[in-house]
């Protein structure tokens, strides 16, 4: 079995119940009232300043996280440009400003690390 297949299976079979709350972008956008102020974990792709996700809600350095269900900005934590386009996991709190929903990130981790720790 190739390493890539093993990796995918690993994610599918053994990825633990995301806690505090593992969610998708779409779930947050659909029912933001359920998530405001709550800590969430989202896995997605770091889009940097790209991604057609509207204007940044807080600072010009806010960056876009996109998963299959949509995109959302992350503020409060930095990503080096080498992570643009890479799979990441974001831990943070859902916030709102001027009608824009975003995540105030606490920590950003590359998803690949879960297989072979770096």
């Amino acid at each position: 079995m190739s390493g890539a297949v093993v990796w995918v299976l690993f994610f599918a079979c053994t990825f633990p119940p995301l806690s505090p709350v593992g969610v998708t972008v779409g779930e947050i956008r659909s029912h933001p009232e359920h998530f405001l102020g709550k800590e969430v974990i989202i896995r997605g792709r770091c889009m940097g300043w790209r991604g057609n996700c509207g204007p940044p809600p807080v600072t010009r350095s806010d960056w876009v996280l996109r998963d299959r269900s949509g995109c959302i900005y992350v503020t409060g934590t930095y990503v080096p440009r080498s992570l643009w386009g890479e799979e990441v996991i974001v831990e943070g709190v859902v916030e709102e400003k001027d009608g824009l929903i975003y995540i105030r990130g606490r920590r950003v981790i590359r998803g690949e690390r879960v297989k072979k720790g770096r």
């Binding site: 690993f10 053994t14 633990p16 831990e91 920590r107 981790i109 690390r113 879960v114 720790g117």
Partner: peptide, 10 residues
């Protein structure tokens, strides 16, 4: 480090 599989960090 030591790493528990499924965790995000060591």
């Amino acid at each position: 480090w030591c790493w528990d599989a499924g965790s995000f960090l060591p």
